[in-house]
Simulated assay, not measured.
Amino acid sequence: MSDLDRHRIIRDLLKERPFASVRDLQKLLGVSAATVRRDIDKLHEIGVVRKVYGGISANDGYAYAERASARPYNENRDIAVEAKQAIAKVAERLVTDGDSIIVHAGSTCYYLGVRLARRNLRIYTNSMPLASYLGEHGTCHLVIAGGELHREPGIIHSATPSQPSFFASKFFLGTQGISSDGALESHPLLVKVIRELSECADEIVLLADSRKFSLKPRHAVLPLSRISTLVTDEGISDKNAQMIENAGIRLMIAQTAGEE
């Protein structure tokens, strides 16, 4: 297999997932780790991908991120599943039995909620898919937001101006994008709901796979100063990791299944 063939395969892979480890690429290409690292260095040098710790990540503005930004919830839930499940597994460790928590709508939060279904917790959610799952499979104390169902983006919300009568130790939420301005969203209803729920929790924990740093929705929902913890995958660049740490946010890195 030629260098060009390997580079094409790597670029095609990053259209479907945010990160690939050296080990992932060894298995896919059938070559040595040294060859994979040379390929990574070359692709990084010409600017089509980003070299990150342990592997390679889709570059800012790459086609994968562009397509993901416009997908509806039901499709987005099935993108980057490996990274989202790894993030949910790490986030689960932040929850203690007996806690009262808010789990927001969104695909990564859905995977977290599934993991928490049978824990001794009080969970408030505005996610219709998650509420349905917890109602059928969970044993946790479930509190569901009141109001109308908005099928896209899949949340329950009341048009009456009021905050839920629920106070949480932690508010877990996803985001459409991340920048120095904070968590970003494009859907006006999500902007409103997230700001309301952020007033009902001591801590805000952001769950976001590394591709979210490539997406730039138009609305800044929460500043970085309001976020206490970010859980992401190993595809995060050194530059973005430094931005998060400089903002005083605890950074937790989830290892995908390709890493031991």
Results as ranks from 00 to 15, higher is better:
56 I>W: 12
76 N>C: 03
94 L>C: 04
70 A>H: 15
68 A>K: 08
99 D>K: 00
58 A>P: 00
57 S>W: 06
89 K>F: 07
96 T>S: 03
69 S>P: 04
85 Q>A: 08
85 Q>E: 15
60 D>F: 13
80 A>C: 13
75 E>V: 03
95 V>W: 00
53 Y>L: 03
70 A>F: 14
66 E>Q: 15
74 N>A: 07
99 D>W: 02
73 Y>C: 01
91 A>Q: 05
63 A>H: 13
72 P>L: 09
72 P>C: 09
56 I>M: 09
93 R>E: 14
53 Y>D: 02
86 A>G: 04
65 A>T: 08
72 P>S: 03
61 G>H: 08
64 Y>V: 03
90 V>A: 13
70 A>D: 12
78 D>A: 08
60 D>Q: 05
68 A>M: 10
57 S>C: 10
91 A>P: 03
65 A>G: 12
90 V>W: 11
76 N>Y: 15
70 A>S: 15
85 Q>H: 14
70 A>Q: 15
70 A>K: 15
97 D>H: 04
94 L>V: 04
94 L>E: 11
84 K>T: 07
69 S>K: 15
53 Y>F: 04
75 E>F: 02
100 S>T: 07
62 Y>P: 11
92 E>P: 01
96 T>M: 00
93 R>I: 04
95 V>N: 02
58 A>K: 02
96 T>E: 01
75 E>I: 01
80 A>H: 12
